[in-house]
Design a binder for these strands. Structure first.
Lengths: 142, 142
DNA sequence: TATTAAATTGTAATAAATACAAATTAGAAA
DNA sequence: TTTCTAATTTGTATTTATTACAATTTAATA
């Protein structure tokens, strides 16, 4: 059940707690780029004692150890993503969905030559997603 | 003095007000990716009656008409950038500076093929900038 | 099992952004 | 030029994401 996440936390020398395991598992199994509030609401179902501060603390430590990444695409709140291979993101301005875009960053090479130490690469595209531009229903009901 | 910005606003059919001219001019002349608060503080010097709400309203309308762009790289606040040619951004985690990176986005072609209508492209890199990695002084004093 | 540093919880505080009503103004029409 | 009106500006109040912090609890080591 949690072996994978126990291993990940041990490898990063992060103290293992049920909360951290649940949060890491949730992010691995829900690739929806949830906010802290969304993670909190989902996990509170099975753990009513969960505190939102714990979710904030936990995503911070997971972030600092590189197990997850934060996504700033929306500009109004931070979203989190289990770290699986390099990919970019597309934000639909109509339905709000954030879609994974599986491309590499061809600029990384030239970035390495310009003297800055690059630790993170984020590619964000914004517009209207395939579904919405076909006129299908979306969460805004428009 | 303001001819350029009068022309830009007219072309976009935005009503011309002194506040909008000042804000647009400020962004054109200060490529530091300022926050609303920074724009507000700077312009309040010469116009003590300026309201922060006006700055919020103005950057919104300039944004909607494509004269400026918003930058979400920091995750804690929105920053604004006069729209000049395509470029990416680098955020230094040490000094906080946001540096323009003059590269195109080679992924745009493949993005156009995946069915989403792309309206914006943002390339963000994070790490330690050239200056800071050389151990020079920075605004954090570290 | 006992110990202790670290984590969790809950409340309070902060700060960016938004909502909104009243006063002002840009720009079109007379 | 003057009048008019919708749009803009202003200032205050509110909302919401995030951070700060103290008290309680717990993971993991000895």
């Amino acid at each position: 059940m949690f072996e994978k996440y126990v291993r990940l936390l041990k490898e990063s020398q992060i103290k293992i707690t049920p909360q951290r395991l649940e949060i890491l598992k949730y992010l691995d199994e829900h690739r929806t780029h949830p906010t802290v509030d969304e993670i909190y609401s989902a996990l509170k179902e099975n753990n009513p004692a969960l505190s939102k501060t714990t979710v904030y603390n936990s995503v911070d430590i997971l972030l600092n150890h590189g197990l997850i990444q934060s996504i700033t695409i929306s500009g109004s709140e931070l979203r989190y993503d289990f770290k699986h291979g390099m990919h970019h993101h597309f934000l639909c301005k109509k339905c709000g969905e954030i879609i994974d875009i599986n491309v590499e960053c061809p600029n990384l090479g030239s970035m390495l030559e310009c003297g800055h130490e690059v630790e993170e690469v984020h590619g964000y595209f914004k517009g209207i997603c395939k579904k919405c531009s076909k006129g299908e229903t979306n969460r805004n009901g428009s």
